[in-house]
Deep mutational scan, measured.
Amino acid sequence: IGSLMYASIFGNVSAIIQRLYSGTARYHTQMLRVREFIRFHQIPNPLRQRLEEYFQHAWSYTNGIDMNAVLKGFPECLQADICLHLNRSLLQHCKPFRGATKGCLRALAMKFKTTHAPPGDTLVHAGDLLTALYFISRGSIEILRGDVVVAILGKNDIFGEPLNLYARPGKSNGDVRALTYCDLHKIHRDDLLEVLDMYPEFSDHFWSSLEITFNLRDTNMIPGSPGSTELEGGFSRQRKRKLSFRRRTDKDTEQPGEVSALGPGRAGAGPSSRGRPGGPWGESPSSGPSSPESSEDEGPGRSSSPLRLVPFSSPRPPGEPPGGEPLMEDCEKSSDTCNPLSGAFSGVSNIFSFWGDSRGRQYQELPRCPAPTPSLLNIPLSSPGRRPRGDVESRLDALQRQLNRLETRLSADMATVLQLLQRQMTLVPPAYSAVTTPGPGPTSTSPLLPVSPLPTLTLDSLSQVSQFMACEELPPGAPELPQEGPTRRLSLPGQLGALTSQPLHRHGSDPG
């Protein structure tokens, strides 16, 4: 009997000691992992102490058991019943959930998450997105703005933001810190809205009876308010094209079509300037034949640059190039080494500058006005007194259609001029006259002087055409309008007829 009692007592005591040691061994194993994590990542002392304290409290609170892992091991129907039991206190005593059906309560219970916070733990920081609604079931918390405590909340209090009033989550206007050990039930806004969409009859009752104890939403960050730039940057990543407008005076608003859609830094370009900076079609017209890549860069430059609305530039004389043409100036200075066709295309550029300027006046029909002061630039669209967005969009579309028509007509005119030049060069190729044979009589004449090349004649003739079109064909006081194609086609051969009437002889060394 004594040996039996000794064996039973010894066996029970050893089993008890073994169970104690097993729990202690698990605790030390998990604690060792936490300390190894702290050492590996070199976490500083204040945060390291918070980690160790939280682990110790969580171990004593749950005995080292992962409740979520245990809950996920059950089937979904059983999980709903378990969640309904775990959140029964909240669902029974909170006013917004009263009167809900059994199915609605089960769906809500599945969406709730339980959070346990030790003292000093910050649940929400200032500036964080308010993605959830919090219900306090135990403990107390404090809300701070800077170093000032603005509120202390306790059991059955609710904090967050009214989700039904805002389409997008706002930002917190303060820090939420736990004063004691707290148990909180939180539900994400997407989950709550999903359940309320499934039960629309409960939705009206819920929003009407929901009383948020403390609204954390920062009202200064609401979209459309003066301080909402940061919020707009976070939620409006896919922005449309940006529009900046110059201020319109009362006198300017009476004149229709007073602005032109141009790229940034293009205030001095012609009315047909689009795409790359520098001139019509993204580059100076005089350098068009020598740089074919300008047409390839036109599309990307047009689509990537934001639109700006600026006044037209001052008018340019008909014979003056659009500006920024070092290529043609070098050719004029060193005409001995340049291609003979460069002079002809220089005359073509003069005609283009004249036609572009006159067509700009035809479509816009307003006098040039000086540029406004820099303080009046970049007025935002949302400022008071601005035109409605639809009106601005319609004006932009009208300007775009005008620019497209202008570009089409300029292309047709350019093709006409090039065809005339090619026809003239085919009839009378460039050549130098040879020395004529002296006559049989004693009164022999001296050799004839060489005839100037055709490109120079073409430049003079085209300059005469531009001056003739600019000065004589337009009646005084009438708006400057571009001439039609047949009129220009008839004027060019008439001007060139006198020049080509002389018999030109080919030089023996000319390969053409």
Rank of each mutant, 00 (worst) to 15 (best):
G127N: 06
L129I: 07
T131M: 09
Y134L: 03
F135V: 06
F135H: 01
G139Y: 03
I141W: 01
E142D: 01
R145N: 15
G146T: 08
V148W: 08
V148L: 10
V150F: 06
I152A: 10
K155Q: 14
F159Q: 02
P162Y: 14
L163E: 03
L165T: 13
P169R: 03
P169H: 03
P169F: 01
G170Y: 02
G170P: 01
S172G: 02
N173Q: 09
D175G: 03
V176G: 02
L179R: 09
T180K: 03
T180D: 04
C182L: 05
D183M: 15
H185C: 09
K186D: 04
K186W: 14
K186I: 10
I187L: 09
H188S: 10
R189M: 10
L193A: 08
L196K: 02
L196S: 05
M198A: 06
Y199S: 02
P200V: 03
E201C: 04
F202D: 13
F202C: 11
S203K: 14
D204T: 13
W207F: 04
S208P: 07
L210E: 02
T213D: 05
R217S: 11
M221C: 12
M221S: 09
P223H: 09
P223R: 12
P226W: 12
G227S: 11
E230P: 13
G234N: 15
F235V: 09
R237L: 11
Q238F: 14
Q238T: 12
K240D: 14
K240Y: 12
L243C: 12
S244E: 09
F245N: 12
R247A: 08
R247K: 08
R248C: 12
D250N: 04
K251Y: 12
Q255P: 10
G257R: 08
S260Q: 11
G263H: 12
G265D: 09
R266L: 12
A267W: 07
G270W: 05
P271T: 11
P285T: 11
S290I: 15
S291W: 11
S291Q: 14
P292C: 08
E298F: 15
P300V: 05
P300M: 01
R308S: 10
R308V: 10
P311H: 03
P311M: 12
F312I: 12
F312V: 12
S314D: 08
P318K: 04
G323M: 13
G323S: 07
G324T: 15
P326T: 01
M328G: 09
K333F: 11
K333R: 13
S334G: 12
S335G: 11
D336A: 12
T337N: 04
C338G: 10
C338R: 08
N339C: 05
L341E: 04
A344L: 08
I351E: 04
I351R: 10
S353T: 14
F354G: 10
F354T: 07
S358M: 01
R359L: 10
R359I: 12
G360H: 14
G360T: 10
G360K: 07
R361S: 07
Q362Y: 13
Q362S: 12
E365W: 03
C369R: 15
A371L: 09
P372V: 10
P374A: 08
P374N: 13
P374S: 08
S375F: 07
S375T: 01
L376I: 07
L377E: 09
L377W: 11
N378V: 03
I379E: 09
I379A: 08
P380E: 09
P380L: 03
L381H: 08
S383Q: 15
S383V: 14
P384F: 10
P384T: 14
R386K: 11
P388K: 14
V392M: 15
D397E: 10
A398I: 10
A398T: 06
L399Q: 02
Q402S: 12
R405A: 06
E407R: 04
T408F: 03
R409N: 14
M414L: 13
A415W: 05
A415Q: 07
A415F: 04
V417W: 01
L418T: 05
L418E: 03
Q419S: 08
L420P: 05
L420K: 13
L421M: 04
R423A: 07
Q424P: 05
M425R: 08
T426S: 07
T426A: 09
P430N: 14
Y432G: 10
P438W: 11
P440K: 09
P447T: 11
P447H: 08
L449K: 10
L449C: 02
V451D: 05
P453H: 10
P453G: 10
L454V: 11
T456P: 08
L457Y: 09
D460S: 05
D460C: 05
S461G: 11
S461C: 09
S461V: 05
V465M: 15
Q467T: 11
M469C: 14
C471G: 09
C471D: 12
C471H: 09
C471W: 01
E472H: 13
P475I: 06
P475L: 08
P475V: 09
G477P: 10
G477R: 13
G477T: 08
A478T: 08
A478E: 13
E480H: 15
L481Q: 07
L481S: 05
P486G: 04
L492T: 06
P493F: 11
L496Q: 12
L496S: 07
L496F: 01
G497P: 13
A498H: 09
A498W: 14
S501M: 13
Q502L: 11
H507A: 11
G508K: 07
D510N: 13
P511W: 15
G512H: 12
